[in-house]
Structure formats: C-alpha cells, structure tokens
C-alpha cells in the first residue's frame, strides 16, 4: 500500500513491540506494558493482535486469520485483507499451511506445530480485573503472586453451583508462576495451550499489554483436587462432518426450538468433509423442556 511501511507499522514502532515481545517470552504469562499505537481498526477489534502480527510477519509468511474459529467472519476477513493490502503476504484458510495464525476466541482444532506462531487478540489481559478494578493494585498482586482471591472466587462458584461457572476466558497459571487470561477462548480450548509446540503470543491493544507462552510450557487451568478442571462442549456430533470431539456452534434453524450443531473451526470441518466424513445435515428438534418430569431436556435428532 502506497505511503505506508511494510505491514503498516513504522520500524521504530516495530522495534518497540519486538523488544516487548522478547521480554514477554522470557517471562511466560507476565503482562508487558507496551506503547500500543492507534491502528486504522478500532480498539477492541484486534488492534493488539494486529500490532503483534505486524511486528512478527515477514514477506515469506503465510497468514491465517480466524474469528470464532471461522475464516470468513467479517472481522477475520477485514484483518486478513488489512495484511494482504499492507504487507502483501500470502493468506490461507488452511491451518496446516499457515505460519502465523491470528485468532479471536478460538484455538484451531488441529494441533499446531513448532514452526507456527499463534497470535491471540486480547480484549482484557488482566485475569484479576473482576476481583480488583485498579490495575496499579493488580500489578502488585502479580508481583507478589497473590492469587488467593481468584481461588476464593472459584470456590464460591463451587459452593453455590457445585462447579466452577466460568465457561470462557478461564484463568490459567503459566509456568507455575503467573496467573494469565487466555483471552475469551472457550474453556474447551484451554488444554490446547498446555505444552503447545507453537509459540503463543497475546496482544491487548487498548489495554496496552503484550504477553506470551513459549512452546512446551506448563499451562494449568485453575482447579481444586476435589473439583478438577473440566471442559464443556455441546454433547452432539457436527451435522456437517460428524465430528464428535470438536467445539460446536449452535445454529438456530427455526423459531420452534430447531437447532443444528456444526464445527466452529470451519477449516477443520471442511477438511473432514473433503476426507469423506459426513454428518446428518439435519437440524435437531427440542425433545422436552428443561425441568420437565421427563428429565434431561437435551436434543435428539
């Protein structure tokens, strides 16, 4: 794009971000403040991820951008176009082909490799923000590894609901030292972060923080011995590719309770369909209202 540097950011800004990234990798899970710039996309729409990607990206990279697991959601399209336009890099929807994957709210189903980097867009990097609104104070809490309040909060859930009621952005401990917000990925994706072969980078533009998880690093979702961490997914098969272990989107098909469950990771789903896997293609109808004597209230085809 005329008049702008490769990947939009000027070199001085990239150097500043690169310095922050190296420190972030050296202190796994610790939020490094950085001089986040105003981007031509709004804050909250991936400016942190974009700045990280722009500072890492090279001409021979292949970029994949997903939002909610899908390559064709409008914001993913918009960000992919931004880099195609400003950096002229190759883009792909194929997880395997990508060298850099920028994501909002999902980790691809396919296991990432050592030669890949995943960049998360982070709206709120501070895992303690609901417990303590002052960032000056949370910074002190991280310095002292003072995380008791978070355990108390989770335990309150267990006493009230019999389980931890956090279903996304579920806090993790990185390398046994820093409490970290994994970004609003579903808790279903949390286990993928543990000992991941790929480097994981996190950018929060509005909050001006960068953090990272090196490859093969311990990432543990907070839990208790008697209440181990567990993930949730809709207990169905994908209606398109029949997958029974992928994260599913619920699509409303009519106004009478009809639902269809399909893979949130569109590339994963298409790859499976190309390999000959096929679902029923059918919507589910509501069986019985929740709370009825019939028990359950789940979905049946």
């Amino acid at each position: 794009m005329n008049g702008y540097n490769f990947a939009y950011l000027d070199e001085q800004t990239k150097r500043m971000i690169r310095r922050a990234l190296l420190k972030a990798v050296a202190i796994p899970g610790h939020q490094v403040p950085f001089g986040s710039r105003e981007m031509p996309l709004p804050y909250g729409w991936g400016t942190g991820g974009i700045q990280v990607t722009a500072s890492v990206l090279g001409a021979d990279d292949t970029l994949k951008v997903i939002d909610q697991g899908a390559d064709d959601t409008t914001n993913a399209v918009s960000i992919r176009r931004f880099f195609a336009r400003t950096a002229g890099v190759a883009t792909t929807t194929d997880t395997e082909q990508a060298t850099i994957i920028q994501t909002r709210h999902r980790i691809p189903e396919k296991k990432l490799r050592e030669d890949q980097i995943i960049v998360y867009q982070v709206p709120q990097p501070e895992p303690l923000f609901k417990l303590e609104s002052s960032r000056a104070e949370t910074r002190r809490m991280h310095a002292l590894a003072e995380y008791g309040a978070m355990h108390v909060r989770l335990y309150e859930d267990i006493t009230r609901f019999g389980q931890v009621a956090i279903s996304y952005d579920y806090p993790v401990m990185v390398g046994g030292r820093f409490l970290m917000a994994p970004s609003p990925i579903p808790a279903f994706d949390n286990p993928k972060m543990h000992m991941m072969p790929a480097l994981q980078l996190f950018g929060a533009g509005r909050e001006k923080r960068i953090y990272a998880i090196p490859p093969y690093t311990e990432v543990r979702s907070l839990d208790f011995e008697d209440h181990p961490f567990r993930t949730t997914r809709a207990p169905h098969r994908c209606a398109l590719c029949n997958a029974d272990n992928s994260y599913l989107d619920e699509v409303v098909t009519d106004d009478r309770g009809g639902r269809m469950f399909v893979c949130s990771d569109t590339d994963h789903c298409e790859t499976r369909q190309e390999a000959g896997h096929a679902g029923t293609g059918e919507a589910l109808v509501r069986e019985a209202p929740v709370g009825s004597a019939a028990r359950g209230g789940g979905m049946k085809p």
């Binding site: 990239k14 690169r18 190296l22 500072s55 990206l57 090279g58 480097l199």
Partner: peptide, 13 residues
Amino acid sequence: AQSSFRALLDAMA
C-alpha cells in the same frame, strides 16, 4: 530487521 527478529524470537522461545 524482520528476519533477524524472527531468528531472535525463535531462539528466545
């Protein structure tokens, strides 16, 4: 600068 940084980032990671 980009390729040197990637080498460095990978080395640090």
